[in-house]
Amino acid sequence: MTAAWRPPRTTRATSTSPSGTPADHGLTDKDPHNLRELAQTIALGARIVRREKRGKPTKRLENRVDRIREQAQAREDTKNTSKRKK
């Protein structure tokens, strides 16, 4: 059995970045996820825990969470590289 899945840790909830501009992503200015992705990963995490308790496989859901995280990080990386080029 794999270790229980935990949602990404956040330190504070805010709708603006430290510079005062609106944040276009997750709960903190360091988080690459947007609110939709955070909600998805939390919901999937709850489903994973429920399935683990029932002894059912969770690999498909864990892969989905990993894919969401990878897409969010890739989007953030491309955003950061495009800012550097300017």
Rank of each mutant, 00 (worst) to 15 (best):
K56E: 04
R60F: 08
E52F: 03
T58G: 01
E37C: 10
A39N: 08
T14Q: 13
K86N: 11
D66M: 09
G55E: 02
G20T: 06
Q71C: 06
L38R: 15
I48L: 06
P57A: 10
A39Y: 06
T41W: 01
T2Y: 02
K86G: 12
R50Q: 10
P8D: 01
K83R: 15
L61R: 12
K79C: 03
R75G: 14
T41Y: 01
T16C: 06
T11Y: 14
D29R: 09
D66I: 05
R6L: 13
A13W: 11
T10S: 13
I48G: 04
G55F: 01
G20A: 05
A43T: 12
R12E: 12
D24N: 09
E37Q: 15
D77W: 11
K86I: 08
S19W: 12
I48C: 04
A23K: 15
K59E: 05
D77L: 14
T78I: 07
P8E: 02
T14P: 00
R54E: 01
T11W: 13
T21H: 12
G20M: 07
R36S: 07
E37K: 13
A43S: 10
K56N: 03
A74S: 12
T21F: 05
N80G: 00
R9M: 12
R84F: 08
E62A: 12
D24L: 08
I68R: 11
K85F: 14
L35A: 07
R6E: 03
T11K: 13
A4I: 06
D31Q: 08
Q71S: 13
V65M: 03
E62T: 09
V49A: 14
Q40I: 03
T81D: 05
R84K: 15
A4L: 08
T28M: 13
A3P: 02
T81R: 15
R50E: 05
M1Q: 00
I42L: 11
K79P: 00
E62H: 11
V65Q: 03
Q71K: 15
T41H: 04
R64F: 00
Q40C: 05
D29V: 05
R51C: 01
P18G: 07
R6G: 01
E62P: 00
D31G: 08
K59D: 04
K86V: 08
R51W: 07
R54W: 04
E70M: 09
T41N: 05
A23E: 02
E76M: 13
K53M: 01
T21W: 02
L61T: 03
T58K: 04
R75M: 07
P7E: 02
G45Y: 07
Q71H: 14
A74H: 10
S82R: 15
R12V: 10
P22R: 14
L61Q: 13
T16S: 09
P22G: 02
K86E: 10
K56Q: 15
K30M: 04
T10F: 15
A23G: 03
E76I: 02
T2F: 06
R12G: 06
R50Y: 09
R6S: 13
I68W: 08
D77H: 11
D29E: 13
E37G: 11
S15M: 06
V49C: 02
S82V: 12
R69S: 12
K59S: 10
A74C: 00
E62N: 13
V49I: 11
A72V: 07
Q40T: 03
H25P: 00
L61D: 08
L35W: 11
Q40G: 00
G20C: 06
T2P: 04
R47I: 04
